[in-house]
C-alpha cells in the first residue's frame, strides 16, 4: 500500500515559488550511463534534479547532451554553481544557467543552488564568498538555495541576506559519511525555523545510504539533496528506491514524534498475569 492509499497526507515541500511533492532532490552527475541516470531519477520519485553548467565541447557535436535524457517538462531543473571558488564566478555561472533554463522554458530558471567552494580536497564551502554571492544573486532576482557548512551562525547569515533555503552539508560532498554533527543541524533548525517554522532547511551532501537520509529527515529538515550515494551505489536504481522510502520514513517518523530515550527497559507485554512467578518473586526483583 502506498502512502497516498493510506490516507496519510503531508504538506508539499515549498521552496520559494516552487512546490515539490517529493522531499528528495537528486543530482544528475557521476552516473556510468545516461540511461542509468534516467532510470535512477525515475526510481527516486524526485521532481527536482540538479544540473551543472560547463563549457560546451567544440569538436564533438554528435556527443549526447544530458538534456536529451532529462524530461524538462517533468522535472524542475536546479542549476548549481559547482566548481566555483569565488562569488564572481558563482554569479556568472548562475546567470548562464538561468539563460539556458529560460530557453528550455523550465520553471527552474528563477532559482539556483549556490555552491562556492574553498578548496578541492575537502570541497567545503567558503562561507565568506558564499554569503557575498548569495547577497548578489538575491539582488539579481534569483531564489537562492544555499549550500553551506553546518555552522548555525553562517546559516543564520544566509537567511538574513535573503536565501530562499539554507542547505547545510551533513558531511563533505561525496564522502558518504552521513550526518557528522547532528547537533549543529539541530541548532540550524532552531535558529532558522524558531520564529519562522516554514523556512526550508535541506541537508545537502555527505549522505552515504538510506539510513542517513532517514536520520536527517528525523531531525526535522524539510528535505534531502544527494547525488553520489545513488550514482555510485553498486545498483543505483535500487538505491534510488531506498532513498525515496527513507525520505518518506524519516519524514513520517519526525511528524509522529519519537519516544524519549530511557536508560532502563519498559516491558511491551503486560506484567500482570504471567504464569509461574509468584507475587513475591516479582517484588523481590
Amino acid at each position: 500500500m502506498s502512502l497516498a492509499e493510506t490516507g496519510i497526507s503531508d504538506a508539499p515541500l515549498i521552496l520559494g515559488s516552487h512546490t515539490l511533492r517529493s522531499r528528495l532532490i537528486v543530482g544528475t552527475g557521476k552516473y556510468d550511463t545516461l540511461e542509468l541516470m534516467q532510470q535512477s531519477l525515475e526510481a527516486s520519485g524526485s521532481e527536482c534534479v540538479t544540473v551543472a553548467v560547463r563549457r560546451e565541447r567544440l569538436y564533438d557535436p554528435t556527443g549526447r547532451n544530458l538534456l536529451d535524457y532529462i524530461d524538462f517538462h517533468r522535472y524542475t531543473l536546479l542549476p548549481n554553481t559547482a566548481g566555483c571558488y569565488n562569488a564572481k564566478d558563482a554569479v556568472r555561472t548562475a546567470k548562464l544557467g538561468r539563460e539556458i533554463l529560460l530557453g528550455l522554458e523550465n520553471p527552474g530558471a528563477d532559482w539556483v543552488k549556490l555552491e562556492v567552494l574553498a578548496d578541492t580536497k575537502t570541497l567545503l564551502p567558503d562561507p565568506v564568498e558564499t554569503v557575498l554571492a548569495c547577497e548578489q544573486l538575491v539582488e539579481l532576482g534569483f531564489q537562492v538555495l544555499c549550500y553551506t557548512t553546518d555552522d548555525p551562525v553562517i546559516a543564520k547569515r544566509l537567511k538574513q541576506v535573503g536565501a530562499t533555503a539554507v542547505m547545510p552539508a551533513g558531511s563533505p560532498i561525496g564522502s558518504g559519511q552521513g550526518i557528522l554533527n547532528p547537533n549543529n543541524i539541530r541548532i540550524c533548525l532552531e535558529y532558522l525555523k524558531g520564529e519562522d517554522p516554514d523556512y526550508p532547511v535541506i541537508v545537502d551532501a555527505g549522505v552515504g545510504t538510506a539510513s542517513d537520509v532517514a536520520f536527517a529527515m528525523e531531525l526535522g529538515v524539510d528535505g534531502v539533496l544527494l547525488n553520489t550515494a545513488i550514482a555510485h551505489a553498486r545498483d543505483p536504481v535500487r538505491m534510488a528506491h531506498a532513498m525515496r522510502h527513507a525520505t518518506e520514513a524519516g519524514r513520517l517518523a519526525f511528524q509522529s514524534g519519537r519516544i524519549p530515550r530511557r536508560l532502563y527497559a519498559s516491558a511491551s507485554s503486560p506484567e500482570d498475569g504471567v504464569i509461574g512467578r509468584t507475587r513475591q518473586d516479582r517484588t523481590s526483583q
Binding site: G27, V51, A52, R55
Partner: peptide, 10 residues
C-alpha cells in the same frame, strides 16, 4: 566567447 551547456551535477 564562453559557450556553456548543462551537464550532470549534484
Amino acid at each position: 566567447l564562453e559557450v556553456v551547456t548543462l551537464v550532470g551535477g549534484g
